Every structure is written in structure tokens, then in C-alpha cells.
Computed example of a mutant assay.
Amino acid sequence: MAADPPLPAARLAAVASSPVREILALTAQGDVISLAGGLPSPDTFPADEIRAAFAEALAGDGARRALQYSTTEGHPGLRAAHARRLTARGLPTAGEELLVCTGSQQALGLVCDVLLEPGDTVLVEDPTYLAALQRFGMAGAHVVGVPCDDDGLLPDALETAVREHRPKLLYTMPNFQNPSGRTLPASRRDAIARIAADLGLWILEDDPYGELRYEGSALPPIAALDDAADRTIHISSLSKVLAPGLRLGYTRMPEALRAQLIVAKQAADLHTSTIDQEAAAGAMARLDLDAHLHTVRALYGERRDALLAGLHDALPEGSTWNRPAGGMFVWARLPEGWDATQLLRAAIERGVAFVPGAPFQVGTDPDPRTLRFSFVTHTPDELAEGLRRLGAAAQR
């Protein structure tokens, strides 16, 4: 009788499947209005420009370059274009400081590969991005949640956690956070930078939504602050400004980690798809990206307002929710005694879905009353119908 093969790595036992992906699979069939997934609206994809850019990349002798292996660091023109955008947003950046990745999710994984040993502690906002929790679990890290309020991470709580747990890394989404939609004020960004400098801490600043602001003034990235400049890895993505199917993200590398991150990228996949980089660089050259983003913001802002306008009638009396200044998500809390997972079951029966908030939370006692709505994928009329269905589920 043949011997059994060895077991999978033990660290995988602590990494759960994403409930968002499971809910999306449920809602892919039938007439379900999904307020669950963090998907950009296909209405915003600049398909004509991307189509033309692919055609141009594959025309003539250019196809030889577009279909060949490439450098690990990425397409020089694409890196330069993104560096200019970061610089315009208050984070002076040269193309040589950027590493093109296969989505910002890979960027997050490369940081884990370079910085984390099994058992190292990572601090995260509580709640936080699900896929980040998965990736930290894959690295064998010990994840500790830092308490937040309506303005995000609490600096005093962060300092206490750093002194108590001696973490290697803080993971934060300062702009329109997933799942909560919260944005860190400038004073808290300054405090985080000071704590990291005083107590010795790396910061991973994840900013996929920063250009999706609908009101108010933009705030400087944490990486732009003097106390944090040498210890902040800034990652971002083209998924929310062009199209997620391109799977293109970036890491802005501090000098101290540059060589290690490039080696980690080489070991992961040699380099990100050459043809996708060529096409993205061509699309960004063809497209007035600022004008495109102005259109996207107007569309998403209208949809945010439509969702907020209907929540009062859709959720049970005593519920609360926030009003994000940008991004893709609204965070809500049901009254005492309610359970968002139970409400989800009734909601799916009526053809609408959202994501319960408990899986985004860290620790053993998540709040079962919390939930996340994504508003960008549906028109105001579709949102109104989805909320009507949700109200019927809540009344039951």
C-alpha cells in the first residue's frame, strides 16, 4: 500500500477562505443585486483606449518587445507615469523607486516575504482588509488589531500596542479604508509617523482608493512625512483608475528594502506581464487620466449618495452608518440584538447581498452587528431596488 504524501504547510490551517469571494459566488447566479464585492464599475473602464493600446503594442516590431521577457522592475514608461502621479499627490517619487507588481496584492505579499518571519507581529487597523489578513496568515505572522474610531486608527492605542507587542510592521489604509471607508486625518498621520520613528517600526501604506475622493481636500501620504519617509512602503494599484483585469500594482520602495524587494519579485514571477505593462503605458499616454478620474468620481459620488439616501428606510431603526468622503464602501452597524450574518441569509432570499463585518475584524470577539456596503457597481435605480429588498428582509 502506498504511503500518504506529506501534509500541506501547517500555517495554511489558520488562513480562511474569503467570505467576500464566497458571497460573490452565491450572487453570480440569478437576479441578485450585490452590494458585497469591492468591484469597480465596468461603466468606468476606458475600453477603447485599452483596446487601441494593446493593438499598438502588438503592431509591427513592437510585438517582439511586448511578447518577450522583461526586466523585474517593470516598464520604464509605466513607472515614470506613476511616479509623476505620486509626485503630484504630494509624494515626490522617481521611476527608479517603483517596482511594478501583478496587482497591489502581490506588492503586499512581497513585503511579507521580505520583512516577516513566522511568529513576527503585525499591527493592523481593526477592522481591516480581508486579503491582507490572509496574506499575513500565509506568512505565519501574529496579527494584532489596533482599535479605531470614526476617524480611523487611534494613535494612543497604536503606541500602546507597539510597546506591548514589539511588532515589525504596521499595515494601514489611510484613505477610504476597506472595509470601513474611514480616512485618517492629517494629525493622526503625523502621530503614526512619529510613533514609527520613535519606537522602530515599518509602515505598509496601502492606497488603492486615494484618487477616488468625492469631497474635501486630499491629504499627504504617510510616506511623504519626514518621520516616516525612510520606513514606509507605499503600495497602490491601477485597478481602481483603469481596470482590475490588467492586474497592475506598484510598490514604492524605501532605499533600505529596494534590493530585497526586487529579489523577492524575481523569485515570485520574474516580472509582471510585459504585454499588459505595454498596453497600460500606452493607455495612460492616450488617456487624459485626470479627466477620466473626474468622470469616475462624479459617477461614484452620485452612487454613494443614492445608497446613503436609502439606508434609513432599509435598515432597522437604531442602525448607524458613516458617510465616506471617497472610496467604495459604507460601514454600518445594526441595533443591539441584531446579527448581520442572519440578516444576509434573509437578504439573499430576496435578491440582495452585502458583506457582514465580522470577518474583517481581528480577535476572538468580533461585533456581529457590523456590515459593509459597496455602492459603485450599481446605478442609483438599482441601489434603490436593492435597498427596498433589504428593507423587506429586515422587516421579516
Rank of each mutant, 00 (worst) to 15 (best):
S104E: 15
G145D: 07
G140A: 05
Y129S: 03
C112S: 14
G137P: 05
A131F: 02
E117P: 02
C148V: 06
L123E: 08
T128Q: 11
Q105E: 15
L153F: 03
L108H: 15
L116K: 14
V146C: 02
V144C: 01
V114W: 08
T121I: 02
V114A: 15
C148D: 02
P147K: 08
A131I: 02
V146K: 05
G109H: 15
Y129G: 05
G119D: 07
L115H: 10
E117W: 05
D150Y: 02
F136I: 00
R135M: 08
L115G: 06
H142D: 09
R135G: 03
L153S: 08
L123N: 11
G140H: 00
L123K: 05
P118F: 10
G152R: 03
L108I: 14
Q134S: 11
M138F: 01
L115R: 04
G145E: 03
V111L: 10
F136T: 01
G109Y: 09
G152F: 00
P147N: 07
V124T: 13
L116V: 14
H142N: 09
D151G: 11
C148N: 07
V143M: 04
L130D: 09
H142K: 14
L110H: 10
A131N: 08
D126Y: 06
L153I: 01
A141N: 09
V143Y: 09
A107F: 13
Y129L: 02
V143N: 03
L108V: 14
G109M: 14
P147E: 13
Q106T: 08
R135L: 12
A132K: 03
A107T: 02
F136Q: 00
Q105R: 15
T121D: 08
G140R: 06
C112M: 12
A141R: 11
Q134H: 10
L123A: 09
D113H: 10
S104M: 15
V114T: 15
C148S: 11
F136C: 00
V114K: 08
A132W: 10
V146R: 03
T121L: 05
G119K: 06
V146M: 03
L116N: 13
G119C: 04
D149E: 06
C112I: 12
C148Y: 00
A107E: 07
P118H: 08
D120Q: 07
V122C: 03
L153A: 03
L108K: 13
F136S: 01
V114Y: 10
L108G: 14
P127M: 04
Q134N: 09
M138C: 14
A132F: 08
A107N: 10
G140F: 05
L110T: 05
S104V: 11
A132V: 06
R135I: 05
T128L: 00
V144S: 00
T121S: 04
